[in-house]
């Protein structure tokens, strides 16, 4: 009797809950989770050595304030409301993760120190060591830009020439087939000796990885251009240079850009390994150095910076591509 009553009650309650609109409750849930995060920090005793958590709590206050302001503003501005509703589920998920992580590390040591530092400790490192982290990020960026640019500057023309000329392809294919698949990092022992400085050795490693991906994709990009485009070009009076630079190249660009994304991920690997083994600067070096001192919170902090940096670089290349390939239908968004 009571069971059936319960079912009826639940069936009645569900639509009523829906009529309240779950979406409009979500911001309140977010704020509750933020409050919980602060409470956990203030009230529960630390089991792991805590370090400095004031930065973290301050940051949470600031973010909570911004979020609350966003929520209030969203009832006046429609576009803000739509964005809030879109972002809130993810924000809730992140907050749940943060609460759980802090409980599992700092407050219980179920995930043991020092390998699993609390988020508050990692944030503390980001605040206290931002100068060295920032400098390392700039060093990594410099190495990436130099290496990637050199690799692309050689790889794209190599690939285009292979797609264009049978003879060039004949001589180039064996080199590409044997040298190309070797991971750039495997060259480290030779490269470190062959180059005057470990910096230029690292540039070379990044460039080598980039070169292979760019060559392969530029080659297939040009080789796959629809022959009809060339035929039309010829009947319109186009010479070889026009066919190559104004027809083959733009037609191959979408594939060349795919190559550049492949090349980027390869060059990230080359970059980090090169910094860990050769150059004494950059985020790869920072991680290696922090690891040597068992400062795992610094390792995590460097990983966060690295994630932001590399993601930013990829976004930038996507941005360039979207500007260059405006003519293309159905671009993938990043």
């Amino acid at each position: 009797m009571s069971l059936s009553k319960g079912i009826v009650a639940r069936n009645l309650a569900l639509p009523r809950l829906r009529s309240l609109k779950l979406a409009s409750l979500q911001p309140a849930i977010s704020l509750l989770l933020i409050a919980l995060l602060i409470l956990v920090h203030k009230i529960l005793p630390n089991v792991q050595p805590s370090g400095n958590t004031t930065n973290f709590v301050d940051l949470v206050y600031v973010l909570a304030g911004l979020y609350a302001a966003w929520w209030i503003a969203s009832s006046f501005v429609g576009s803000l409301k739509a964005r809030l509703e879109y972002a809130t589920p993810i924000i809730i998920a992140v907050l749940v993760f943060l609460n759980a992580w802090e409980l599992l590390t700092l407050k219980s040591n179920i995930f043991p120190a020092p390998y699993f530092p609390s988020i508050s400790k990692i944030i503390g490192v980001l605040f206290s060591d931002w100068q060295l982290l920032g400098l390392s990020a700039l060093y990594s960026l410099r190495l990436l830009i130099l290496g990637f640019t050199c690799g692309a500057a050689v790889g794209i023309p190599t690939g285009i020439a292979m797609g264009w000329s049978q003879r060039f392809s004949y001589w180039m294919t064996p080199i590409l087939r044997t040298v190309g698949p070797i991971p750039a990092t495997a060259w480290i022992p030779i490269v470190l000796v062959a180059f005057p400085s470990s910096f230029w050795a690292s540039v070379f490693l990044v460039a080598l990885g980039t070169w292979f991906a760019m060559t392969i994709m530029s080659w297939s990009g040009v080789a796959n251009v629809d022959n009809a485009y060339f035929e039309v070009g010829k009947t319109l009076g186009a010479g070889n240079w026009y066919l190559l630079s104004r027809i083959a190249l733009p037609a191959a660009l979408p594939i060349i850009f795919i190559g550049s994304f492949k090349a980027l991920s390869v060059s990230f690997v080359a970059l980090v390994v090169a910094e860990m083994l050769g150059v004494r600067a950059g985020l790869g070096w920072y991680i290696q150095w922090a690891y040597g001192w068992a400062q795992y919170q610094n390792v995590y902090a460097a990983l966060i910076v690295m994630g932001l940096l590399f993601s930013g670089v990829i976004s930038f290349v996507f941005y360039i591509r979207d500007r260059v390939l405006v003519w293309q239908k159905g671009l993938i968004k990043w």
Partner: peptide
């Protein structure tokens, strides 16, 4: 002897260059 702009060609497929307006 070869293609020339004095003999213009239109295919069944328009083969417009997609990267050009």
């Amino acid at each position: 002897r070869g293609p020339n702009y004095l003999r213009g060609l239109v295919f069944q497929d328009p083969t417009l260059f997609p990267w050009k307006t």
